[in-house]
């Protein structure tokens, strides 16, 4: 299998863990995997991306522009920021809930993510997920598993939901496993009910 997946969001949203789950699930299915996280100086509140390259034909750890099969975005503007990586027939799974920049309270821009979602819909195939609705009381710390579940449900990752669940069981701290699996399955269901 050759598959390029880009995971993006804002620092602190759990993109790194999500990308590790994808990479290790792909590896457990017998694939060669390379990945790269561009974290640098970005701490909480900065843009974060993980590039995951599955298959034997990838040499660069970063996905070339216009080559990603799937973008999994935890935040609307971050999806748009990385759209240049998407293939012409690529697919985006995007969380509807915006993260306002930390400077928003000083320099108000009124950013709410709505324009971003509209733009993505205009440009490519996408599934818009409301992670807040899926996670309910559990809150923002579980967005990553919910969105990952939705991504798995689209069938576009080339990785079975079961393989990802096995990775959640193996990599997430024990007391959070059940909650993560729960929101993962809610995401999964939402994608399955969605007409792709």
């Amino acid at each position: 299998m050759d598959m390029d997946i880009l995971v993006c969001g804002v620092g602190g949203q759990g993109t790194v863990l999500a990308s590790k789950l994808i990479a290790s699930a792909a590896m457990s299915l017998g694939n060669t995997v390379h990945s790269a996280e561009t974290i640098g100086m970005a701490q909480r509140g900065g843009s974060v991306t993980s590039h995951i390259r599955i298959g034997d034909n990838a040499y660069s750890p970063l996905i070339p522009l216009g080559s990603a099969d799937v973008i999994i975005a935890f935040e609307p503007a971050e999806a748009v920021r990385n759209l240049m990586y998407l293939k012409k027939d690529g697919f985006v799974i995007v969380n509807r809930i915006p993260v306002k920049p930390t400077t928003e309270s000083i320099h108000e821009t009124g950013y709410d993510g709505v324009e971003m979602i509209e733009y993505i819909k205009k440009k490519c195939g996408c599934l818009v997920v409301d992670a807040s609705e899926l996670c309910g009381e559990l809150g923002g710390k579980f967005y990553n598993s919910a969105i990952l579940g939705a991504a798995a449900g689209t069938g576009r990752l080339g990785i079975s939901p079961e393989a990802l669940i096995a990775e959640i069981e193996g990599r997430v701290p024990e007391k959070f496993i059940e909650a993560n699996k729960k929101v993962f399955s809610l995401g999964l269901k939402q994608a399955e009910n969605f007409d792709l």
Binding site: Q43, R44, L65, V80, K88, K100, P101, Y111, Y119
Partner: peptide, 22 residues
């Protein structure tokens, strides 16, 4: 090779500079 989507009409994106944590 021209790959990917045409994105010349991209809306302005929020800037996220690194800041001291809360």
């Amino acid at each position: 090779p021209e790959k990917g989507l045409s994105l010349s009409d991209m809306p302005p994106l929020p800037v996220r500079p690194p800041v001291l944590c809360a």
